[in-house]
Amino acid sequence: MATAKRRHDPDRKDRIIEATLEVIAVHGVSGTTHRRVAEAADVPLGSMTYHFAGIDDLVQQAFSKLTAEIAVQFDAVLGNARTVDDARETVVGIICDGFLNDRHTTLALELYAYVARVPDARRLTTDWMAECRKALERHFTPEIAIGLDALIEGASLHNYMNPGLVGADAVRSMVARLTT
């Protein structure tokens, strides 16, 4: 009797995590199921329980990947600033030029709602915010970095919901007040 040969698929877990982000972006966390993710990742449904302890584990690993990617991008953008004035203008650009694409913003909003409902997952946002503040602290004091981080999140959200609401001149003025 012949046995079925196992398929070698070393990227399966990563593919599932990426598919989870796609499913969340389309259906929200509440509409994310093992079945939808398995279908999107083109893997057998059994792979879900093999790689993840449950749906919360799957969602949290996906959000962890998302926040790590965004933090790396944020750090790279701020790393290009050579002076404090460059860093100020970089912050203006982050807010006004749509640093996050629509998919990332949608996923970030889903993450915020998720951690509001699953307090044990708050480390996802606290770790992410800490990484962003660390990037800001290359150019600003920790106290100023906290204020800038809050401004970036709030003003970016306002501009996402109402494009152009918080214009570059207004942001530039706010950043100047926070950083001088």
Rank of each mutant, 00 (worst) to 15 (best):
R117I: 02
R117G: 10
A130F: 09
E131Q: 13
E110V: 02
G93M: 04
D169P: 02
L151A: 14
N101I: 03
A155M: 08
L136C: 09
D149A: 14
L157Q: 10
E131Y: 12
F63C: 01
R117K: 10
D149S: 11
L151D: 06
R103S: 05
T32I: 04
Y112M: 15
T90P: 05
E143L: 11
D86A: 06
N80R: 15
D11P: 10
E137C: 14
R35G: 05
D14Y: 12
L100V: 04
N159S: 03
H34I: 05
W128V: 02
L109A: 07
L165M: 14
D42H: 11
G46C: 09
D42L: 13
D169G: 08
T180S: 13
M48F: 12
L107F: 00
H51N: 14
V29Q: 00
Y112W: 11
G147A: 14
E69V: 03
R36C: 06
A130G: 12
P119C: 04
Y160A: 07
D75E: 11
G28H: 03
Q73T: 07
A68L: 13
A40G: 04
R122S: 09
P142K: 09
R103A: 04
I24F: 01
I70D: 00
T20I: 03
F74P: 01
A108F: 13
T141C: 09
N101W: 04
D11G: 15
V77D: 08
A62Q: 00
A176N: 07
R122H: 07
A81H: 03
K134R: 15
S64Q: 13
L124N: 00
T125L: 13
A4P: 12
A53E: 09
Q73L: 13
F99M: 02
D86G: 07
